[in-house]
Design a protein around this nucleic acid. Structure first.
Lengths: 85, 85
DNA sequence: CAGGATCCTACCGGATACTG
DNA sequence: CAGTATCCGGTAGGATCCTG
């Protein structure tokens, strides 16, 4: 989810929390993991109240096939589910 | 994991349990879910001690792009990890 | 062999409060 | 705002026993 969202561009911590509907606590963990795996970059901006931006790394592009395939399938599968009921 | 294994052909309950290293309890749940989602078929064979075969359904083929992409990435990523350390 | 029923524990994630 | 620390209930999953 986070990767998919970030494919739309940089996001700040709070934005990710809202968009992904993930609590700060968990989001923090997830982002640390993604960072450790070299998939996401963390940048601290020295603004009045500090803000932090997360973005995809070049390496994360190696996942594009996976992400694209998953998104595509998700859409199709959802349609199928709706038609069933 | 289960889907990837089943791509190699039908498997019996016990085989899946061993290959995927999933306990019977959980495997049972997982397979029921996969069946409910129309991704896996369950066939009871009337052998001496009953055996049950699980196989991919035609619909599961819609996931091939996803599975292929994931497997491919997994291999690449693993290599990368090894080189790092 | 396939797989359900139970019991029990470890961990997961939510809610809340707090700091820089 | 970003993020950590704490407390705490729900649950996923292991281990074990049992049946068809």
């Amino acid at each position: 989810m986070l990767l998919s969202i970030l494919r739309g561009g940089k996001r700040r911590f709070r934005e990710l929390s809202r968009e992904a509907e993930i609590s700060p606590r968990i989001l923090s963990k997830e982002l640390q993991e993604l960072e450790m795996n070299g998939l996401v970059s963390r940048t601290v901006c020295d603004t009045k109240p500090v803000t932090v931006e997360y973005a995809l790394t070049p390496y994360s592009e190696t996942l594009s096939d996976v992400l694209n395939a998953m998104n595509k399938w998700g859409q199709q599968h959802r349609k199928r589910i709706l038609k069933e009921s």
